[in-house]
Structures are given as C-alpha cells and as structure tokens.
C-alpha cells in the first residue's frame, strides 16, 4: 500500500462518520424547538409566552393580568381573537405603528403587556418583531410576545383556547 493511501476500512469508517453527522443535522433540523431557539435572537425566549400560560394569565385578576394587544390584520381579528385583546393593527405598516405608539403612550411602562399576531408562521410574521422592538424602545419592561408557531388558527383557536369574534 502506498504511503498516505486510505484503506477500505478507513474509508468505511469515515463515510460512516460523515453519514452520522449529516443524519444528526437532519434530525436536529426536524425538531420544532430548534426552530424556536433560532428565532429567539429576535424575541428572546424569556420574552415569549406560550398559549397555555397566557390562557391562565388572562383569567387572573389585578396587577398580574396582562394587557393583550393584537398587532395583526383586522380580517383575522374580526373572525377570532383573544377575549379582551385590543386591536392595534398590522404594525409593519406605518399607521399600525403609529397606533401602537399612541396606545402605549397611555400605559404604565412597568405593567404586563402581551402582544400577538399569528397571521402567518412565527419566523415570517412581519408585525411581531417591530411591535416588540418598539415597546422595548419606549421603555416597557414587562412586554412579552405570544409564541404562535404556525398561526393563531392552528396554535390557539384549533386548540380550543377561548376566542371572541367581531370588532
């Protein structure tokens, strides 16, 4: 055998390692939480709230009950929204952002606020990140974002969580 040449056994070993590595990548990419972790760069995990937790929170009374602001399109809000949620509108548009600023200006900056949209999959929502960033910039310390992986329909309404209809 020439110096530096690879034996069949070494080749098989290397191919096995390569296959195992790529398989691990495939499995990792198929896991939901991994996707969620990637989006945490925009909205930190500590600033996200899961649907089950929000359901309990909106049932609470007093200072712990969050103000829920909806920052998505009106067409979806009219069909179904979280009971008590205030309509702001799509913050990706200037008029929606202005409405958010105006509403936030009247709020206590240390009160709990939850924003949500769910118009489309979490990592493609055009409204959540600008709304979250704006409220943080304005000094809100307890703002959280409802994590809806797919949409409000799939991750809230179809789960049987409470909804209200109309404007």
């Amino acid at each position: 055998m020439k110096p530096g040449s690879i034996t069949p056994r070494t080749l098989i070993l290397r191919l096995s390692l390569l296959t195992a590595l790529l398989t691990a990548m495939v499995i990792a990419s198929a896991q939901g939480p991994a996707k969620s972790a990637a989006t945490a760069n925009d909205v930190p995990a500590a600033s996200q709230i899961q649907p089950e937790e929000l359901v309990q929170a909106i049932k609470s009374e007093g200072a712990q009950k969050p103000l829920v602001l909806y920052v998505g399109p009106k067409a979806f809000y009219t069909q179904a929204h979280i009971p008590g949620a205030e309509f702001i509108g799509p913050v990706a548009r200037p008029e929606g952002m202005e409405k958010l600023r105006a509403r936030a200006a009247s709020l206590s900056k240390d009160g709990p606020v939850v924003i949500y949209c769910g118009c489309c999959p979490w990592d493609h929502c055009p409204n959540i990140r600008p709304a979250f960033a704006e409220l943080r910039k304005m000094g809100f310390t307890r703002v959280r974002v409802l994590y809806l992986a797919n949409s409000f329909g799939v991750n809230w309404a179809e789960k049987g969580f409470p909804v209200a209809k109309g404007e």
Binding site: F76, Q79, A80, S151
Partner: peptide, 10 residues
C-alpha cells in the same frame, strides 16, 4: 373566508 369555516392564518 367565513364560507370556508374561517381562515386564521396564512
């Protein structure tokens, strides 16, 4: 959307 039973996400 209503006719299709509601569409709550795109």
């Amino acid at each position: 959307a209503d006719a299709f039973g509601g569409v709550l996400g795109l």
